[in-house]
């Protein structure tokens, strides 16, 4: 499977990664090789086969009588959790009980926001 530099830049943009020119070259090579390897799945005849469930032990759980409702949902009950100060303690920038981030809308003559 051929991956171009343009493909790499498009995917990097979707993934919010700012790759350097050197990283783009390496990514072209590595992703190309890995995609070529995983293309072996095309050899499998799987028309109409249902995809695996997201819980890989789902069938076993059902057979063992663990009701799905028991194992997926907890009661919607109030309980103690982080205080606002604990939730903000790891923030790179916080103030007035909130996380602080740079501007969301770009401005043509803007200066970097204070962090």
């Amino acid at each position: 499977m051929k991956i171009t530099a343009q493909d790499v830049r498009y995917i990097a943009d979707l993934a919010h990664l700012e790759l350097t020119p050197e990283e783009i070259v390496a990514m072209e090579r590595d992703l190309g090789a890995i995609l070529e390897y995983v293309a072996q799945l095309d050899q499998l005849e799987m028309p109409g086969l249902a995809p695996s469930p997201l819980h890989p032990a789902a069938a076993a759980l059902a057979a063992l009588g663990s009701a799905a409702s028991n194992s997926t949902l907890r009661p919607d009950a109030q309980r103690a959790w982080f205080t606002p100060a604990e939730a903000l303690a790891n923030a790179p920038s916080a103030g007035a009980g909130h996380f602080k981030v740079p501007r969301i809308i770009s401005v043509s003559e803007g200066t970097p926001e204070a962090e």
């Binding site: 790891n90 790179p92 920038s93 981030v101 740079p102 501007r103 970097p112 962090e115």
Partner: peptide, 17 residues
């Protein structure tokens, strides 16, 4: 870079950050 961990300083916009 918003709620925890490393944040690259001096970004002009959220997307760039």
């Amino acid at each position: 870079g918003v709620r925890y961990g490393y944040r690259e300083p001096d970004s002009r916009t959220l997307a760039e950050m």
